[in-house]
Design a protein around this nucleic acid. Sequence first.
DNA 1: GTTTACCTTTACGTTAACGTAAATATAGAG
DNA 2: CTCTATATTTACGTTAACGTAAAGGTAAAC
Lengths: 131, 131
Amino acid sequence: MTMNTKTAEYGISDLSREFEVTTRSIRHYEDIGLLTPQRRGKTRIYTPADRTKLKLILRGKRLGFSLEESREIVEMYDPDQGNTTQLNSLLERIQIQREKLKQQLNDINTMRHDLKEAEAACRKALNKISS
Amino acid sequence: MTMNTKTAEYGISDLSREFEVTTRSIRHYEDIGLLTPQRRGKTRIYTPADRTKLKLILRGKRLGFSLEESREIVEMYDPDQGNTTQLNSLLERIQIQREKLKQQLNDINTMRHDLKEAEAACRKALNKISS
DNA sequence: GTTTACCTTTACGTTAACGTAAATATAGAG
DNA sequence: CTCTATATTTACGTTAACGTAAAGGTAAAC
């Protein structure tokens, strides 16, 4: 894809390379409406906003989110800054995500603690052998 | 399942209720060798160790681990306290899990930060409306 | 002008992680 | 003895998230 220093834009393989994800996946995210790049002819053109959305999707994946769950996150990124009702529902959804992350943090910390113990036991066993 | 205060044991539906998971799932974990309960006749009997393994599996799920990834964790729980080679490979695997959790922590913190900003923007927009 | 390197769409295939249904067994309650 | 609850195995079905061709268009490089 040809570079453009003014208004940054990316080709599909630019994003594919940068985030180490297949173009098939990127197109799939479009299929289900998570991304909506513009076209130059038939070719997809991604804006920085699109790129950010992709980043959010992939981060979600790493955290075990389904694409539908990631949709929640992505749609927070450019909400219809419309009416009070919508803004309030957005606040609610933000809260829900917060709770989820809190639970994940708990799980991670428990797991880290367990791994610490496992490592200690492991080192202890190694010491016994070498002595 | 009949209670036994001496050597704690659980029936499949005990675990199903406690962890809010279907018996089908629990049997599935056995199918792929993640759990290996004993039998009384044809009926499955789960020990506290089995219960712990199940807990590890489900925690893994919440963190987006595949069952194969959770297998790694579960197998750390009762390793063959065998030879030095095995113990060293165990230490390696523990390190790998540590790295994964570190990455997850990063993702979570970034996400929390983003949510904070989203909330701020949201409240700001609400203020503008009400003023 | 034809390779090379991309891009596109269409469409069937695959894997994980179960869901769901059917047929059967067993044990305790009334 | 029969009903109800809970257990079992077997096996086909389902969904998400892509993988993997196949068939073709475009554009710069040689």
